[in-house]
Simulated scan of single mutants.
Amino acid sequence: MPWQNNNGGNGGPWGSGDGNGPRNPWGNGPQRPGGPSGGGGGGKGGPDFDEFIRRSQERLRGLPGGGGGKAPWLYILLAVLGVWVVFTSFYRVDAQERGVVMRFGKYVETTGPGMHFKLPAPIDTVVKPKVEQVSTIDIGSADASSENLMLTGDQNIIDIAYTVRWKIKDPEQFLFQFAEPEETIREVAESAMRAEISAATLNAAIGPQRAQIAEQVRVRSQELLDSYRAGVDVLGVDIKQADPPAAVDAAFKDVSAAQQNAQGYLNQARAYSQQLIAQAQGEAAAFDAVYAQYRLAPEVTRKRMYLETMENVLAKVDKTVIEANGVTPYLPLPEVQRRARAATTAAADANSNQ
């Protein structure tokens, strides 16, 4: 052997040729039949590699699943690999979701609801954004905890709070076009609102044009987001508050109350004017009707008008006018009626006293 010295000894690098050197690191194994280990040389023998390999094989055969020299961890590795492939190759997409498949981080396809197959992870990964979910972004505060001040077209300041409702329109653009899509939507909506408020007066923004401004903000925001390829559908903008700043809110309310009172007085004046006009028109129509009858029979109509006028004038006078031949021109009929009523009242009092 190469470790034998010239004297035929069995020392090698762990022992001297005469057998008196240091022991080898494996010790002296059992001797084979027919001579010491390590070949045909004499002495106490060097390291026995065959014996070491034989003992290692016996230990492997003693493990569970061992046999025939095959390591059991090979089967365990294959089983784990199979489970990993099965559980990472199939995925399910819900009705309100879309499956965005990426291969090594690069977009591959978008899948609809249902079960789908892909390459096992980490080759393919799936992100499932909820495309049917309506999300909201609140800008400003309606509870006076903070102010969102904007400048109107007539150089006034308004404190406005509103909510933007949106949902995902294109999952690919929504996931890959912007790092923070919600922050982009907020900034676009605020920019659109400032542009619309700057073109309106304070009174219009507070009152009659609130709905119109909200719709214009929605349209402008959608146009900007589409130009950015954000993959977002803006469903609506709801203005929750549009008031002057808190510092001048009390004075503004006083001015608004005075304007409302003035408008109330104007409405009352218009109503009274309409009433007088209607009354005059009615009297004119009645006069026209009388005039038409007068043209048909002037004498009879003239006498009738005279008698009706005298009746109105003498209604409260204690006189009775009778125009007839052979009749006494004056009869004290009212006096007779008063005496009769007085007698009836006295009789009633006397009966009650009894």
Score class of each variant (00 low, 15 high):
R59C: 03
N7R: 00
S145T: 11
V83D: 04
W26L: 14
P298E: 00
K128I: 02
Y294W: 08
G8N: 05
E190M: 07
E183Y: 09
A204N: 15
R220W: 00
A343F: 12
S56H: 05
E182S: 08
P25C: 10
R55K: 12
V126Q: 01
S221N: 07
F176C: 05
Q177G: 02
V100N: 00
T152C: 12
P332F: 08
P329M: 04
P171C: 00
I277A: 13
G39R: 08
K253F: 06
T320C: 14
V164H: 00
W166A: 08
Y228C: 05
E109A: 11
G15K: 02
G264A: 15
Y75D: 12
R218I: 02
P113N: 01
W14N: 06
Q281V: 14
I206A: 10
I239S: 08
M305C: 08
N203E: 09
S227A: 01
N312W: 06
L266M: 14
R59M: 13
Q209V: 05
N261W: 10
L331N: 05
N7K: 07
K130T: 06
Q281N: 09
F174T: 01
K169S: 06
S352T: 15
A258T: 08
L63Y: 13
T345N: 15
Q263S: 13
P181L: 06
N267F: 11
T110N: 00
Q279F: 02
T320K: 15
R302C: 00
E323D: 09
R165L: 05
M115I: 14
M193I: 05
P72H: 08
Q260A: 15
R339T: 14
A230T: 12
L78P: 12
D226H: 08
P72R: 13
N353K: 15
G41D: 04
G82K: 04
Q281D: 09
Y330F: 14
R304L: 05
G326K: 10
Q274I: 02
D249P: 00
G140K: 03
V217K: 12
R32N: 10
T136H: 07
R32G: 08
L235K: 09
